Simulated assay, not measured.
Amino acid sequence: MKLERTDPRSYTPLTEEERRRRAESTGGEPMLDFDVTNDSESTAYIGYHHVDVLLGLQHPRTGEPAELSFYITGQIQELLFKLLFTEVNRIRDLLFTDSLDEALRYLRRVERVQRVLTTTWEPVSTITPTEFAAFRDELGSASGIQSYMYRQLEFALGNKAPRMTEPYRPVGWAYEQVMAALRAPSLYDAALGVLQRRGLGVPAHCVERDFAEPYQPHAAVEQAWARVYQSPREHPDVYALAESLSDLNHLHAQWRYTHLLTVERILGHKPGTGGTSGVNWLRKVAEHRFFPELLAARTAI
């Protein structure tokens, strides 16, 4: 809906009643008093961040106030998934060139982003069962399992599962992106390449494989990580890499568990959207860990 343009220099704040009417008339879109698509009525900040576009992407479908918290949180998470996917691939490529110092620097950034991602569940956790029920039907078959950005992130971290590409097949462009992430080497594939080039006994078939297939743990890889932990002064940068990957694993698990607890608080044991079993399905997902031998080595040491 295009609003009547006014001169921003003569802007006066809207009254509470005017804000309510404006919100109702725009279906929840930003309450702008002038046309920000006109360059002369924008600012450098708006133009750089495309704030007008960003704030025009929220379209709640009901009058339930809590829906906006749910809506915006989902969009924020998608943006953070994109950031994490980009940074994880950057780190992977740095590991392939043995640029461990730089890779570790970017892993510190990933850690910060992951912590922010987990806190995004906080607004959603305040939604009561009654509030969620007021807009849940509008979701239809929509489910987080359909997030192609999140699926690409999981693949980039090494959780390769070809069957998980199926939800995207009806959407050609999304399916192509997800398939490309499935076929690409993961962060863990790159880390194993580092171990092999350091002469830590990683078999060739563990690094030269079909990256689209699920990774199969190997005892020699577990032993390689154990050697790194037992001799940290001999392999200080690889030791630091092992701990950074462990932090990544830990923080991703925290995000999954927080998701589980949030859904449990709102839905109880109702079935989830998108055909999942809800909390039971999320609990199974939350048990998954990346970098299997890195975790197993802790038991062996």
Rank of each mutant, 00 (worst) to 15 (best):
L260A: 00
R61A: 13
Q216H: 06
M149I: 11
E213M: 12
Q77E: 09
F70M: 05
P185D: 03
N89V: 02
H288A: 09
Y11F: 15
Q196A: 15
Q77F: 08
E67F: 10
A191R: 05
V202D: 06
P185C: 02
V51F: 10
L157K: 06
A191Q: 00
Y11G: 06
D98I: 01
V178T: 05
R112C: 01
M164Y: 09
T120W: 03
T6M: 08
L261F: 05
E222Y: 02
I127C: 10
L107M: 12
G275L: 02
S231L: 04
V113T: 15
Y257I: 10
K2F: 06
R283T: 08
L192K: 04
N38T: 12
T118D: 15
D189A: 04
A23M: 09
R233G: 00
H205N: 14
A286T: 05
R115C: 07
Y148M: 10
Y11W: 15
G63L: 12
D247A: 07
S25A: 14
E64G: 00
A191P: 01
T26S: 11
P123G: 02
A204G: 02
S42T: 15
L117C: 03
L54E: 09
P170E: 08
P13D: 06
L107V: 00
R197D: 00
Y257T: 12
Y48L: 10
T73D: 03
A204I: 08
E122G: 08
H252K: 11
D101Y: 07
A134H: 05
Y11A: 13
I72R: 12
N38K: 12
T276N: 07
N89M: 07
R198D: 12
V207E: 06
Y71W: 13
P203A: 06
L107K: 02
E111V: 08
R20E: 15
R61P: 00
G172K: 14
G74P: 02
F290Y: 15
D33N: 12
E102R: 11
S143M: 04
A219W: 10
G63Q: 14
S40D: 15
L104P: 00
T299R: 14
Q223K: 15
L117H: 08
S10F: 11
T165M: 07
T118C: 05
L182Y: 04
A191V: 01
I145N: 13
Q254T: 06
G278Y: 05
A44S: 12
Q114I: 02
T273Q: 10
G28Y: 04
E78H: 01
V194Y: 04
G56D: 04
I127V: 12
M149T: 15
N159T: 04
R265S: 12
P123R: 03
W121H: 13
S10R: 11
R298A: 02
L153K: 09
F291Q: 05
A253P: 00
Y71R: 14
F34D: 12
L192T: 02
L200Y: 08
H269G: 02
I76Y: 13
